[in-house]
Amino acid sequence: MNNDSVATAYTTVDGQYVHELEIKRSRFITYLRRVESEGQARALVAELRKKHFDARHHCSAFILGADRTAMRSNDDGEPSGTAGIPMLDALAKRETASGSADLSDIAAVVVRYFGGILLGAGGLVRAYSESVSSTLEAAPLLRRERLRILGVEADYAAAGRLENDLRSAGVQVLGTDYGDSAATLRVALNDDATILTGFNDRLATLTAGASHAEDLGTEWVDVR
């Protein structure tokens, strides 16, 4: 994933999701999986070729990167343009809860078991598009945001209470690291000066000035 990306948020699938449609006796089994590289996307195709070794087609499409800089598709033996491209369009044009088409780091593979009835070019386009679209309708999705990460040091005795207080205030705490002499809470905030100032003020109030936030840079964070 490109950490210098202009994008600050996007949507991806939460792990893997599988959905099946039957269209004119053909079975279309769609797998959606979160991936972060072309290698992972191709590994999914290889995995499903082994699992569904008796299927006629294993068509695929994937989108990678916060700015969706990599988009690929493969018809895997179906007539050119009737499978991979409709699948990719279904991913690329899907509007999410963000109100925009921002799916990325996602791979789709449609495994087709031929049912003996030819669908024709138009029928294949609709079948592969519908297979991915209907799977997206049911799949669990999550937001990824590029957030400012702060490290907040606290005494062992105070760390648990401080974490609870911050979570109660709506602050995303990624976890707590325990060192030799103190604990460090890793906190994620929107990279906005006003929000950072507000957090520092809240932290000073909660700890009576005993804890301070150290800027650890920015990271991509799953926001559920």
Results as ranks from 00 to 15, higher is better:
T194I: 13
I29P: 09
I29E: 08
M71C: 15
L189S: 05
R126D: 07
A139G: 11
V187A: 00
E219N: 13
R49F: 01
L124M: 06
T11E: 04
A188M: 00
E214N: 10
Q40V: 04
P86G: 06
L203P: 00
E38F: 05
L32E: 03
T184P: 04
E78W: 00
S129A: 09
R186A: 10
T197Q: 13
A7W: 00
A92L: 12
Y113N: 04
W220I: 06
G99F: 11
S181I: 06
K50L: 14
A46N: 09
T69N: 10
E78M: 02
V111W: 02
A154K: 04
D215R: 03
I195F: 08
T194Q: 10
Y128N: 02
G65I: 01
R202T: 12
K51A: 12
V125D: 00
R224S: 12
S134K: 12
M87K: 03
G175V: 03
R49M: 04
A61Y: 01
A157H: 12
D4L: 14
E47K: 09
V171Y: 06
L64F: 01
E163H: 03
A139F: 05
L216E: 12
E47M: 08
S104N: 07
G198L: 07
V221D: 00
P140S: 01
R42Q: 14
N2F: 07
L48F: 07
T8W: 03
D155K: 05
K93F: 10
L162I: 01
G65W: 03
F114C: 11
R94H: 15
V173Y: 00
S98E: 12
V187S: 01
D105P: 07
R224E: 13
A66L: 10
L88W: 09
A213G: 00
G209C: 09
R33Y: 03
G123I: 08
L118A: 15
D102Y: 03
A97C: 06
